[in-house]
């Protein structure tokens, strides 16, 4: 029989908020569990379609889709997302410490969680994350907000232009990307997350993170430029840093190279000591 689909959604009630999660369950004779948290306007399916089943071939993986708090019209706060993820870990994996991986806004959420709840986190992987929003990000966010408000379909081109690295886009045709561009969905919860992205400042908290951390940055990232991941690398005491030559959408451009760094850190956390720059593979 061919492998069954591991992407089977389950639902958990976290203090009155219903969230969707995925759990590969099979521990594969390992004692560490990986918990993954997606980025802005994403989900396990859209951001971790590659990573979840691939990493789950080696160990138990849980992935959490945060959901809109039941307060329409209000601002979304980082604390709400952090609480959802912490609550989900306590419900799905009671009494266990986890290896926590966050991508993009998910990296902000998991970094804050690791600082606040060291009792839940054994190790941390931050992919294309940041700790303080800067002007380049605000200006990009302004353009996105304006396109969103005007209803202009150019928001699809703009989002694609920002998400992918130049070298990747330069090697593709519009026909290659059109299906993904057409499939982009915009909604109120996504708008709340984009607004939250303007107000991130967890600099002090990040300095308190004590668990071994792998920070992954992307050379051609135009949404969260690589200086942000370098700032994380500096701010976290027990951090090592790896760079992948893609844009922000590393989970689509080179999920395999991303897997390489994650798997290495999962299998041999001590392979690179605190402060190391992980060499870029030379195939």
């Amino acid at each position: 029989m061919l492998a069954t689909d591991l992407m089977i959604p389950a639902v958990a009630d976290i203090r009155g908020t219903s969230i969707t999660y995925y759990d590969s369950r099979d521990e594969k004779d390992r004692d560490d569990v990986l918990v993954m948290v997606h980025g802005t306007s994403g989900s396990t399916k859209t951001h971790f379609g590659f990573l979840f089943p691939i990493l789950a071939a080696k160990q138990r993986v849980v992935s959490i889709d945060w959901s809109q708090p039941d307060r329409d019209g209000e601002r979304l706060e980082l604390d709400q997302l952090v609480d959802q993820v912490a609550g989900a870990i306590e419900v799905i994996l009671p009494g266990r410490k986890v290896v926590l991986l966050g991508y993009s806004l998910g990296a902000v959420v998991t970094a804050a969680l690791a600082a606040r709840r060291p009792d839940l986190v054994e190790r941390l992987v931050l992919v294309a994350g940041w700790m303080k929003t800067d002007l380049q990000q605000i200006l990009r966010n302004d353009v996105w907000q304006a396109l969103r408000a005007s209803g202009d379909d150019a928001i699809r081109s703009y989002s694609t232009f920002c998400a992918f690295g130049g070298p990747f886009l330069g090697s593709k045709t519009l026909a290659d990307l059109q299906p993904a561009m057409d499939a982009m969905a915009f909604d109120a919860f996504g708008d709340q997350q984009m607004e939250l992205n303007r107000r991130i400042d967890i600099v002090e908290e990040v300095h308190r993170i004590s668990v071994p951390t792998l920070v992954i940055g992307c050379t051609h990232d135009q949404m969260v430029p690589i200086r942000h991941q370098k700032a994380l690398f500096g701010a976290i005491e027990d951090a090592r840093f790896a760079e992948i030559p893609t844009g922000h959408a590393v989970v689509f451009e080179r999920p395999s190279e991303l897997t390489h760094h994650i798997q290495r850190f999962l299998d041999e956390p001590e392979a690179f000591t605190a402060g190391s720059i992980v060499p870029t593979p030379q195939p």
Partner: peptide, 13 residues
């Protein structure tokens, strides 16, 4: 390497 997901029989790939 990205195409390994097909060999791993991940349904969507």
């Amino acid at each position: 390497e990205n195409t390994y997901a097909q060999r791993r029989a991940v349904p969507q790939f």
